[in-house]
Computed example of a mutant assay.
Amino acid sequence: MSEKMLPIALSNRHLHLSQEDIETLFGKGYELNKFKDLSQPGQYAAAEKVDLVGSKGTIKGVRVLGPARPSTQIEVSLADGFSLGITPPVRDSGDVAGSPGVKIVGPQGEVDLKEGVIAAARHIHMHTDDAAKFGVVDKQRVKVKTSGERAVVFENVLVRAHQTFALEMHVDVDEGNAAGVKNGEMVELILE
């Protein structure tokens, strides 16, 4: 087995909210409630869910992730974009300039988000120690090979190396299902 193996996870639709938008959707002074911890230290799935409303349709019960962020960002798959009537660009997290918006509906209010909906680009979170072990640096692009009956090679995979990250590759549900991978399966990082 290669020494460049790492786990993969499928990332379902979700959103990160600013504190201002949390309070608009859930009430003044509202704090998110932790449902469960995520693989990345300090990140969690909140108990709260909202509805996303586009020109073509609504996606109900979209999970909020915490903690609050400086600005609101929604991550959906390309198929979700068709359901909403938008075309989310494939972007690295945080790169939302010029992306479409949607209406976010919560129990206490609504946010008419002007931009901020993306299809997150495939990426690998890794601790800086893992980056050294794998021979990669932050923001480098690599390939990742899956195995099995529907094996694929994912290209243009962004490395996100930081001392607070835990080793895991993230793809959206569309990509993961097309490749036949499941959460926690091991995949191989390929350097050229």
Rank of each mutant, 00 (worst) to 15 (best):
Q40F: 11
P41A: 01
G42V: 15
G42S: 13
Q43K: 07
E48D: 12
K49S: 08
V50C: 07
V50W: 04
L52R: 03
G54N: 05
K56L: 08
G57P: 04
G61Y: 00
A68W: 04
A68H: 09
R69L: 10
P70E: 14
P70T: 05
P70H: 03
S71C: 01
S71D: 10
T72P: 01
T72N: 04
Q73F: 10
V76E: 05
V76Q: 02
L78T: 10
F82R: 13
L84C: 07
G85I: 08
V90M: 11
D92M: 08
D95K: 15
A97R: 08
G98K: 08
V105T: 12
V105W: 03
V105L: 14
V105E: 14
G106D: 02
D112P: 00
L113Y: 01
E115D: 13
V117P: 10
A119Q: 09
H123W: 10
H123A: 12
H125F: 11
H127P: 00
H127C: 12
D129G: 03
A131T: 05
V136A: 05
V137S: 14
V137D: 07
D138Q: 05
K139V: 10
Q140T: 11
R141K: 15
K143F: 09
K143C: 15
R150M: 13
V152Y: 02
